[in-house]
């Protein structure tokens, strides 16, 4: 099989690259597009460090052959604070000491973004479920769980203050 041109909308930009058959989305992001926030922890779908959003859903980019999602919309951690302003999840992770070595952090934040997009007020069980595919070997998870709950509260308050509806993306719920 021949290589093909892959076109994706990545962090609101149209990007194209040439990929051999079977190239993972993770490899496409890191090796072809230079977006290195998503990490290769296990390359077998076990650790969640490569988690990104494809059409709003959290996916393991190391397991996704990029030719199967040609034309999709992808969001990585680089696209979350693109304007230089940390969002609620990032600032809650920062303030809540939810990072140590930082290697799982990009995947954790993207898994949290996907959760808060579909559920602005998750309970602890829902937070635990949302990051159940993301390994952290440093923190013991507690600060991460607290940060995600805190981020949801911050986002609800910010939206209420702005008069915006709490729920913004019904289609992925």
């Amino acid at each position: 099989m021949a290589s093909q041109v892959i076109a994706l909308v990545v962090n609101d930009e149209e990007r194209e690259f040439i990929a051999k058959p079977g190239t993972s989305l993770l490899s496409g992001l890191r090796d072809s597009l230079g977006l290195t926030a998503a990490k290769r922890g296990c390359a077998q779908g076990g650790c969640g460090a490569c988690t990104v959003l494809v059409d709003g859903k959290a996916v393991l980019s190391c397991l996704l052959a990029v030719e199967t999602i040609n034309g999709a919309t992808v969001r990585t951690l680089e696209g979350v604070a693109a304007d230089g302003q940390l969002d609620e999840v990032q600032s809650a992770f920062l303030d809540g000491f939810a990072t140590q070595c930082g290697f799982c952090t990009p995947g954790m934040i993207m898994a949290a973004e996907a959760l808060l997009d579909r559920n602005p007020d998750p309970g602890e069980d829902e937070v635990a479920e949302a990051i159940s595919g993301n390994h952290c070997r440093c923190t013991g998870y507690r600060p991460i769980m607290n940060a995600i709950v805190d981020a949801a509260r911050r986002r609800r308050e910010a939206r209420a203050a702005a008069g915006a509806p709490a729920r913004v993306s019904e289609e992925v719920a």
């Binding site: 890191r30 090796d31 290195t36 926030a37 604070a81 990032q90 600032s91 992770f93 920062l94 952090t105």
Partner: peptide
């Protein structure tokens, strides 16, 4: 933490981010 901003923005450079 001095490294946390890099961690939450994905800008922390790990060795394998070199290309």
């Amino acid at each position: 933490r001095s490294d946390a901003f890099g961690h939450v923005t994905g800008r922390t450079e790990f060795f394998e981010d070199q290309a």
